[in-house]
Write a protein that binds this DNA or RNA. Structure first.
Ligand SMILES: [Zn+2]
Ligand SMILES: [Zn+2]
Ligand SMILES: [Zn+2]
Ligand SMILES: [Zn+2]
Lengths: 163, 163
DNA sequence: GAAAATTTGCAACATTATAACATATGCAAA
DNA sequence: TTTGCATATGTTATAATGTTGCAAATTTTC
């Protein structure tokens, strides 16, 4: 009965990909950074779905492409994309997902479904400020905040029998 | 000028270790779980300091002990300790730290100093409820929440020149 | 004390990530 | 235009982290 967010309902995912690539091109131009073919291809692959993808998964697809790539190629592309805020690494899964708030200077909070693997990235100001206060109370100066919530997405809750 | 938490000031760390081991014995007894010598030794090693320790670091010390251990020994002990809430895994570091709230049924928030590596575990109800609300707003059912804050602890801020 | 369950030992293997160095490419001045 | 520089990529090897599967040993239960 709720207005489900994108990954949780059928949608024209090609539009997601196109938008992500267009945003990336704009952001890189603005930053004077070079979105080379390899980097763009890796970003496109990461955006294949809203499920995070491992570096070696990306590598495998590149191989299918006929691209003769080794791990450093992928990790370097992913580093670049992360640095420009185009993808995020999900620490609890050792994998990568496209950023849905590119260019917004945000700290993501990730809702990760343990069933279907889809990830929803949120910006949650209330969470950010609560974390900030908790850190302040200990005189700790935060620089990088990782918030990953594993659980069941609305769709998978329904599938599992609504208990 | 603030009342620094434990890891950030000199303290009798042997007391930390003793308390952790005593708590562990009590909790395991209560849970009908067996804190075998290997498990207890691994817990003790994890508690060597307030800095997280990698599984292979633990393994190396076991080897020095003369204990003929392989990776599964360590990972199994760590799994056991995690299941009983005696240690936590820090996803962003692939390493493990002793739980300072054992037996309290908590979701930890970890403040991780990038300089000295010390970790302070907090229970931050305000953060927990903010996360819970953010998830609810998306109809997501959280099961496991990871919150890791990297930054500078008060001590290392001071050392770095108080800017 | 025998049967069942749990724990450990052990070997091999799988996955994720980085180091080091060579080559190539784009870009800007001379 | 070519020289030089910074950036990006290719390539090989290796490091670091984590798992599977099965056999032996230990502990618990009956
Ligand atoms: Zn989509
Ligand atoms: Zn993002
Ligand atoms: Zn201590
Ligand atoms: Zn804890």
């Amino acid at each position: 009965m709720s207005a489900n967010a994108l990954p949780y309902r059928p949608h024209n995912h090609d539009a997601c990909v196109s938008r992500a690539l267009a945003d990336a091109r704009a952001i890189c131009q603005q930053n004077n950074a070079r979105l080379t073919p390899t980097r763009e291809r890796v970003l496109e692959l990461i955006w294949q779905s809203h499920k995070p993808l491992g570096a070696y998964d990306v590598l495998a697809v590149l191989a299918e492409d006929g691209h003769n790539a080794a791990p450093p190629t992928v990790y370097r592309a992913l580093d670049f994309l992360q640095q420009h805020g185009l993808v995020h690494r999900i620490a609890s899964l050792n994998s990568f997902v496209g950023c849905t708030h590119a260019g917004e200077n945000h700290n993501g909070l990730f809702l990760i479904c343990r069933q279907c693997s889809n990830v929803l990235e949120l910006t949650a100001p209330a969470v950010a400020s609560a974390v900030s206060e908790a850190a302040s109370a200990e005189a700790f100066r935060p620089e990088d905040v990782t918030i990953e919530v594993a659980g069941l997405c609305p769709r998978c809750q329904a599938d599992a029998g609504n208990d």
